[in-house]
C-alpha cells in the first residue's frame, strides 16, 4: 500500500516538474491535466469538509443543552440559508443569496477584522517596549515609518517621509530578500523531499 502511494507521488511529482521545462504542446497537455486533477481534488475535499462541519455542528447541538444549544444551531442556520438560497435561486447581487452576503456576512467579517486596530493599539501600548537592543531598533523603525507614511507626519518631523521611504526601499528590501531566499530554498528542498517520499503524505504510516 505504502509502496503504491510512493509511486503515485513520485510519478505525479516528476511529471509536474518536467512539464515546467517543456514548452511543447505535450508539456502543456500534461500541465493542464495535472491542474484539472488538483482543482477536482480540492473541490471534492471541500464538499467533504462542509459535510464534516455540518456533522460536527449537529453532534454538538445534540450534546449541549440549554442556552449553549443556540450556537451550533446558528451555524447550521447560516450554512443552510446560504446553501438553499444558492441552490434554489440565482446568485447575483440582487438575489436572496447576494443579500445574505451583503447584509450579514460582509459586515460581520469586515467588522471582525477591523477589531484588530483596537487590539494593535493596545499591544502597541503594552508590549512595544525598549526592553532590548533589537526591540529598540524595531520600535524606532516602526515609529519612523508610522510618521513618514502619512501627510501629517511630515508636518511634525520634516523630511521624515524621505527617511521612511529609504527604510522601506533599502534595509527592508535587503532583509526581506534574505528571508525570501531562505524560504525559497527551504521550500524547494521540502518539495523535493515530498516528491521522493521522505516527507509528506507518502511518508506517513497511516493505519
Amino acid at each position: 500500500m505504502d509502496r503504491r502511494i510512493r509511486i503515485v507521488v513520485l510519478v505525479l511529482g516528476i511529471l509536474a516538474v518536467v512539464q515546467f521545462f517543456v514548452p511543447h504542446a505535450s508539456g502543456r497537455w500534461v500541465h493542464q491535466k495535472l491542474l484539472d486533477w488538483l482543482v477536482i481534488l480540492e473541490s471534492g475535499a471541500l464538499v467533504a469538509g462542509i459535510v464534516a462541519l455540518a456533522r460536527h455542528e449537529v453532534l454538538q447541538f445534540g450534546a449541549s443543552g440549554g442556552r449553549a444549544r443556540i450556537y451550533p444551531l446558528l451555524t447550521l442556520v447560516g450554512l443552510g440559508a446560504m446553501i438553499f438560497s444558492g441552490i434554489l435561486g440565482p446568485i447575483n447581487e440582487r438575489s436572496l443569496f447576494g443579500s445574505l452576503y451583503a447584509w450579514l456576512l460582509q459586515p460581520i467579517q469586515a467588522t471582525m477584522l477591523s477589531l484588530l486596530v483596537f487590539y494593535m493599539a493596545s499591544a502597541a501600548f503594552r508590549s512595544f517596549r525598549l526592553s532590548s537592543a533589537p526591540a529598540t531598533i524595531l520600535l524606532a523603525a516602526a515609529l519612523i515609518v508610522l510618521l513618514g507614511r502619512v501627510p501629517l507626519g511630515e508636518k511634525i518631523v520634516p523630511n521624515i517621509s524621505l527617511f521612511s521611504t529609504w527604510i522601506i526601499r533599502v534595509p527592508n528590501v535587503g532583509a526581506t530578500r534574505g528571508l525570501w531566499i531562505g524560504i525559497g530554498l527551504a521550500g524547494s528542498a521540502t518539495a523535493l523531499r515530498v516528491i521522493l517520499g521522505i516527507q509528506g503524505p507518502a511518508s506517513w504510516k497511516g493505519r
Binding site: 481534488l41 475535499a45 471541500l46 467533504a48 469538509g49 506517513w204
Partner: peptide, 15 residues
Amino acid sequence: ADALTFAASQQLLAN
C-alpha cells in the same frame, strides 16, 4: 481551514 489539509491531517493522525 483548508479542506485538503484537513484530510491530510486526519490521515497523519489516524493512528
